[in-house]
């Protein structure tokens, strides 16, 4: 079963989303800030990362840039999750290296669609 790393500092959102993903059969690991997210990604090698962008210690953009800068984690698809629905946000997230973008509150069906699409197309980490 696919392993998803959820990087989210808000306890309720984390709880809710992780429970719903687990219920749908995903293996979910949690990180509560950007730095922990980068560390966890390196250790746990998840199949996909859901990255909140407003995070303490290291924000989601920096964390994504770090992930994409590292050969070990570069291939892991990152979906940016942000409550910032401003039109520039998606560009900003993609510029940081995010593979997908979705807004909160999460519409689960839509997010699952994006997750599945990315998991299906995951390429080996060869550049």
């Amino acid at each position: 079963m696919a392993k998803i790393l959820l990087v989210e500092d808000d306890e309720m959102n984390r709880d809710m989303l992780s429970r719903r993903l687990i219920k749908r059969g995903y293996d979910v690991v949690i990180a509560t800030d950007g730095q922990l997210g980068v560390d966890m990604a390196t250790q746990e090698r998840p199949d996909l990362i859901l990255m909140d962008m407003s995070l303490p210690v290291m924000d989601g953009w920096d964390a994504t840039r770090a992930l994409k800068a590292s050969a070990a984690t570069r291939a892991i698809p990152v979906i940016a999750l942000t409550a910032h629905a401003m039109s520039g946000d998606e560009d900003k997230a993609r510029a940081a290296g995010c593979d997908e973008f979705d807004t909160k509150p999460v519409e689960l069906a839509r997010l699952l669609g994006k997750i599945e699409a990315l998991l299906a197309g995951t390429q080996p980490a060869i550049i």
Binding site: D10, M12, N13, K23, A83, A85, K104, L108
Partner: peptide
């Protein structure tokens, strides 16, 4: 923006509970 965060929880949990 501030409203969306708690709303996120309201919608999410009620959806979960409904399921």
């Amino acid at each position: 923006h501030e409203l969306r965060t708690p709303l996120n929880a309201i919608i999410g949990y009620s959806e979960m509970l409904q399921e």
